[in-house]
Design a protein around this nucleic acid. Sequence first.
DNA 1: CGGCGTTTTGAGATATCTCAATGGGAGTGG
DNA 2: CCACTCCCATTGAGATATCTCAAAACGCCG
Lengths: 226, 226
Amino acid sequence: MLAAHPDETVRGTRAPGQASNSLDQRMAYATVRRLRAKEHVFCEGDEREHVFRVEEGVIAVYKTLPDGRRQIIDFAYPGDLIGLGVIGEHVLSAQATVPSKVRCLAAAALERIAETDAGLALKLYKAVCQELAATRNLLVTVGQRSAIERVAAFLISLHRRTAAEGAATINLAMRRSDIADLLGLTIETVSRTLTKLRGMGVIDLEQGATRVQLCDLPRLAELANE
Amino acid sequence: MLAAHPDETVRGTRAPGQASNSLDQRMAYATVRRLRAKEHVFCEGDEREHVFRVEEGVIAVYKTLPDGRRQIIDFAYPGDLIGLGVIGEHVLSAQATVPSKVRCLAAAALERIAETDAGLALKLYKAVCQELAATRNLLVTVGQRSAIERVAAFLISLHRRTAAEGAATINLAMRRSDIADLLGLTIETVSRTLTKLRGMGVIDLEQGATRVQLCDLPRLAELANE
DNA sequence: CGGCGTTTTGAGATATCTCAATGGGAGTGG
DNA sequence: CCACTCCCATTGAGATATCTCAAAACGCCG
């Protein structure tokens, strides 16, 4: 499995020049790549040529075992960077769960700039630290929580990361299998747990199983054990 | 629960002056703190004043849920740094599993130096990236592997990180409960799995359940699914 | 030698998985 | 516009890995 050939990339729009820092400046000149659902951004073993920023959609970052089992490490939403903190080749794969857009940055160039631009270097460092914190939280969830706690925790984190202020509805923008592979469960357990939560009146499922209304956020947080 | 009061720290020995870089230089002048088994280096919520380097023993870095369940994020062995990649207060706790020694570095001072010393900054960055990679691997183990695969993977990683070249014996230097909380299992399952591995002739247990001989490393790797 | 903390072992309970069938929605072609 | 298909989600029933509770054995230290 290989990432799609780069010739499907398209030229990015030039920004009007008022970018506020060098990361945004670089981003403004970067190419944008459109991805269909399930298309890969990059795969484990690929040479690491770019760092990406998600513009639209959701990118699942994951690792696989030799026998095909898959663990999703993180979902990247618009604004998130992926492909950081790597030296040689990718040790992870990244795949769009729905039609998405990512902005591509030459990794080597970025790092060259970071060497002289302390602000950019700090920004990259912070991004990696944040990723580390998120991964640790997921590890706690997967290692210690029950199915219902995991799903509740997932819904809450999705809400925090993607919902507009005050909005109580979230868009899953992924299949049950993606959620299952994030949480270390099966799709059946995810499905059953979601229906159980609906039965409890904590959430409501709409529109082809992809939109979720969080009816009782405090209760959901309680069910997640924070 | 709070970390032990700092007045139990002792002065570090001065290095003879041939430290090869600024991290080692700082380390040479840092104080050393001795820890008894189960003593804390720091706790979640403590102000982050130091970064530590393990000199002797093993430090378990962990997070807890409100109801007390504990997930160990990593074991830090001699040479490893802990307390990096944090902004304000600690979001993790760190506790010695056996009598240990850590070298204490003022975090603020370290970061001030890193601002001008690109080599040190890079070293810290690399350390965080490495931590991220290790945490991701553990996440895959906990999320996807069976009990026997988890234990096998743990033994292999312990061997890689601590065993001398060619040595086939490892020192657990921790209780079953620590292994269980790392792998997301119970102590009983860890114990049973270890006896099963012994029954299969892959390992041997000696000396009060703390030393493990890896009789058949290739087989163990196979059992771990890499 | 006695006591304490830890590990091992056993037996039964259970959460989650596996396998299988059903149902719904979106896209396609007649 | 209606079948047809494909993919995905849901639901059910039975299997099982792991957990829970309990007891016994071990090893260490005073």
